[in-house]
Structure formats: structure tokens, C-alpha cells
């Protein structure tokens, strides 16, 4: 079973023990185009599943980041401050925040890879 889970709003969380690495999917980065800014929370902030924790901006659009999980932010990806395009280059590698998960049962509400793939296919069909 994979340790990566997906949300309907195109964020992922890669789980490693009690830690979740949250970012946006390759599909999402592609839809946004050239990313010029990632608005991130601060370390020690709490994020809540289903709620906004930041935003990614391209030149002419901005997309809210919705956290797939709840917990405290233990680290933000500081590389993205100077080089937000890393998300375009490799979205899965370049996570945005690292969260200490407060409720792992939330993962059950998320999509697995197959379900997420199906979601993307149905969205691109429009």
C-alpha cells in the first residue's frame, strides 16, 4: 500500500510515520502553469484538514492550498521561497509543508493513487 494520499482539490500528503509531507500534485502544477510564488504558513501554525493553509500563484491566477490533514506545521520548504518553480519541476519531490499528523484516521477520507488518477482523467475530459 502506497504512503501517498490525495485530496479532491489536488493536494497530496506523503506519510512517513507521524509526519506528513504536503504539496500539490503534478496535475495541479501543470494546470497552474509557471508558479511564481508559494504562500506558506509559519512553523508551529496548526493546519486543519479541509481548510486553507496558503496559496500558489502563477502570473495570472492564484489557487488556495487546502490541507488534506490536520496537525502542526513542523517545517516549511524554504527552497520554495527563492525558487517556487521547483514545484513545476517536480511537484511530488518538492513538498510545501511538513505536518505532524494529529489524526491519522483522516487519511481514510483521502483518495489513493488509482482513485486520484481517475479524478484527474474525469477533470481533463471537460
Amino acid at each position: 500500500m502506497s504512503n501517498i494520499y490525495y485530496s479532491q482539490t489536488h493536494e497530496y500528503v506523503r506519510v512517513d510515520g507521524n509526519i506528513g509531507y504536503v504539496g500539490i500534485t503534478d496535475y495541479a502544477q501543470h494546470a497552474l502553469g509557471n508558479i511564481v510564488y508559494v504562500d506558506m504558513p509559519e512553523v508551529d501554525d496548526d493546519v486543519t484538514a479541509g481548510e486553507e493553509f496558503g496559496a500558489v500563484e502563477s502570473v495570472k491566477a492564484a489557487s488556495d492550498l487546502i490541507s488534506p490533514v490536520s496537525g502542526a506545521v513542523v517545517e516549511i520548504n524554504e527552497h520554495l521561497i527563492d525558487n517556487p518553480r521547483l514545484v513545476n519541476e517536480n511537484a511530488m519531490e518538492n513538498w510545501i509543508i511538513k505536518v505532524e499528523l494529529s489524526d491519522k484516521s483522516e487519511l481514510d477520507e483521502l483518495l489513493d493513487e488509482a482513485a486520484y488518477k481517475a479524478l484527474c482523467e474525469s477533470e481533463s475530459a471537460h
Partner: peptide, 13 residues
């Protein structure tokens, strides 16, 4: 530039 901060894109945010 930096128009994604502005009302026509971010609306209430």
C-alpha cells in the same frame, strides 16, 4: 506584475 495579489484574481482574499 504580482497581480495575483489583487482583487480581480484573489477576490475576497
Amino acid at each position: 506584475t504580482l497581480q495575483a495579489r489583487e482583487q480581480h484574481i484573489r477576490r475576497d482574499k
